[in-house]
Simulated scan of single mutants.
Amino acid sequence: MAKLAEDIRVIDADSHLTERHDLFTERAPKGYEDKVPRVERIDGVDMWVIEGKTFGKAGSGGTIDPQGNKHPFRSSQGGSWGIDDVHPAAWDTGERVRLMDDLGIDAQVLYPNNIGIGGQNLYNTLDDKSAVRMCLELYNDAMAEVQEESGNRLLPMPIMPAWDIQACVREAQRCAGLGFRGVNLTADPQDSGSPDLGDKAWDPFWEVCAGLNLPVHFHIGASQTSLTYFGTTYWPSQDDYVKPAIGGASLFQNNSRLLLNSAYAGIFDRHPDLKMVSVESGIGWVPFMLEAMDYELEENAPAWFDKLQKLPSEYFRDNWYATFWFETGRGNLQHLIDAVGEDNVMFETDFPHPTCLHPDPIEKVSEKIATLRPETQRKVMGGNAAELYRI
């Protein structure tokens, strides 16, 4: 392994936790046991069910088998694997912490799996939004327990009830009281009936998140709109194993629309302390987009360009973070990170998903990370995350 700078604290800014089958049923209030998600075996497959409706397979949520071997997506997570086929660290938090110890990872930020990375599989299933809100609160309560029991080494991002802005405000306030260090929001609340995020109706939510130091996280694939994008970018004639590679790579750049829209909408002029995170999107597209967003707005909407308090690209520097894991900068990673901003980049592993840095993430990236300036290494491998998440 190439020698890294001294005193590096590794914080993994994106990993996933597969939902245990009893996550909801063991926490359901008395009399509501049949009104929360549970797992039923249907035609030989474990499925998540709520009030008679299925909302997805209760699958593995990962591609790493119990022996630690990695498999292609179509042969594992995207195939027949159930929760017993995946490495126990994918769903057992005790096993996760033990694996982190083995790998030299101090803390991990966690996102959901089967219920939808932004919770969309859950809240798009039921018309009774009061029932869905209860389920989201049960999920968030369970994740608060995970964080507390891990001693803040596991930092789940709680899901927001995106169909109701005022409910999002209340849940963000509640989650801050539970000790969460950020929130997980779908990129497309209009999918569930709310205004899009550029609407000023969201200002009370942005104000609460900024005031409570809750960065707002947008993970790729965290909406029905983005998943549709994932499923339509490849040509139908492509091999079934190639299709997820095309869809996955397309999702990275899909997150650029969040940066563009948030900057142009004036959100950060009204809420200058608000922080947002583009999760699992990589960083290679950022420098080009910073140039494009300035050029395109001035060319197409000069009056709006002049109305903003900053250049559109400056909002990334002041208000955004992005995560990276496999990128090399084509041999000049320092140049790439400098172009993005070394204060705006965080390292991730994406465990246990198809593109994760398995089996030894730090060793896998050490050669390229070692090419960075020592201070850059400390920031991107954990310092920026430690500051953002107050750990």
Rank of each mutant, 00 (worst) to 15 (best):
P156K: 00
V169P: 06
V169F: 11
K57T: 08
D65V: 14
V132M: 00
C168D: 03
L110G: 01
S60C: 02
N152W: 07
R74E: 04
V146I: 13
C168W: 14
G177C: 10
N114C: 08
N113A: 07
L154M: 02
D106Q: 07
S130K: 15
N121W: 13
W91M: 02
G151A: 04
A167K: 09
R74G: 02
I159V: 15
F73N: 00
M143H: 05
R174V: 03
D102C: 08
N124S: 15
L138M: 15
D141T: 15
S80T: 09
L122I: 15
I105E: 12
D127Q: 07
P156A: 02
A89R: 06
A131Q: 08
G118N: 13
L110R: 00
D101E: 12
A107P: 08
M143C: 07
P66W: 13
G94Q: 15
M157D: 01
R96I: 11
C175I: 04
V97S: 09
L126W: 13
N152L: 01
Q120V: 12
N140R: 14
S60T: 05
E149N: 15
P88C: 12
G182S: 02
M100D: 09
G179T: 00
R174C: 03
K129W: 06
S150L: 10
G68A: 08
D106Y: 13
N114S: 13
N152C: 03
I105A: 08
R133N: 06
D101L: 03
I64L: 10
G59C: 03
L126N: 05
D84G: 03
I115V: 11
P88G: 07
P112C: 12
R133A: 04
D65L: 11
L138R: 14
Q147M: 14
L155Y: 00
E95R: 15
H87T: 06
L155K: 00
S150H: 09
A176D: 07
A89F: 09
M100N: 12
M160R: 13
W91P: 01
V109K: 07
A58E: 03
G151E: 06
D127I: 13
L110Q: 04
